[in-house]
Measured scan of single mutants.
Amino acid sequence: MDETGKELVLALYDYQEKSPREVTMKKGDILTLLNSTNKDWWKVEVKITVNGKTYERQGAVPAAYVKKL
């Protein structure tokens, strides 16, 4: 869990989004888990830093590609 009490997951593999509802992640990324009720796809929040600014993006990733921490 992070400092706000939200559950975290670890990306076990790289994943490139294939639709606007998904998010890209790299192996080793730590993501915030938002919903894991679907056994195949979990909704997560990814933090992306671009030019020193951090953005948050929500989307789905394959459940088999992440592990709860």
Rank of each mutant, 00 (worst) to 15 (best):
M1C: 15
D2S: 13
E3A: 13
E3W: 12
T4Q: 12
G5P: 14
K6I: 11
K6P: 13
E7A: 11
L8K: 11
V9M: 03
V9R: 01
L10P: 00
L10A: 04
L10H: 03
A11H: 02
L12H: 02
Y13F: 12
D14R: 03
D14E: 04
Y15G: 02
Y15H: 03
Y15I: 00
Y15L: 02
Q16T: 14
E17V: 05
E17A: 15
K18P: 03
K18G: 07
K18D: 05
K18C: 11
P20T: 09
P20V: 09
P20K: 09
R21Q: 14
E22P: 04
E22H: 07
V23C: 06
V23F: 11
T24D: 01
T24A: 05
T24K: 03
M25I: 15
K26T: 07
K26R: 12
K27V: 06
K27M: 07
G28N: 05
G28S: 03
G28R: 03
G28V: 03
D29T: 06
D29G: 02
D29C: 08
I30V: 11
I30M: 05
I30Y: 04
L31V: 05
L31I: 06
L31F: 07
T32S: 07
T32E: 06
L33A: 01
L34D: 01
S36D: 15
S36R: 09
T37P: 03
T37L: 09
N38F: 06
N38Y: 07
K39G: 09
D40W: 15
D40T: 13
D40I: 14
D40G: 08
W41R: 01
W41V: 02
W41H: 01
W42L: 05
K43R: 13
K43E: 15
V44Q: 00
E45D: 02
V46A: 08
V46L: 11
T49N: 10
T49P: 03
T49M: 11
N51P: 03
K53V: 14
T54S: 10
T54L: 09
Y55A: 06
Y55G: 04
E56H: 15
E56C: 15
E56K: 15
Q58I: 13
Q58A: 10
Q58R: 11
Q58S: 11
G59Y: 05
G59D: 00
G59Q: 01
G59R: 02
G59K: 00
A60C: 15
A60V: 15
A60F: 15
A60H: 15
V61T: 01
P62M: 05
P62E: 03
P62V: 04
A63R: 08
A64L: 09
A64T: 10
Y65A: 10
Y65K: 05
Y65T: 06
Y65V: 06
V66T: 01
V66N: 00
V66W: 04
K67W: 08
K67I: 14
K67D: 04
K68P: 08
L69D: 01
L69Q: 03
L69R: 02
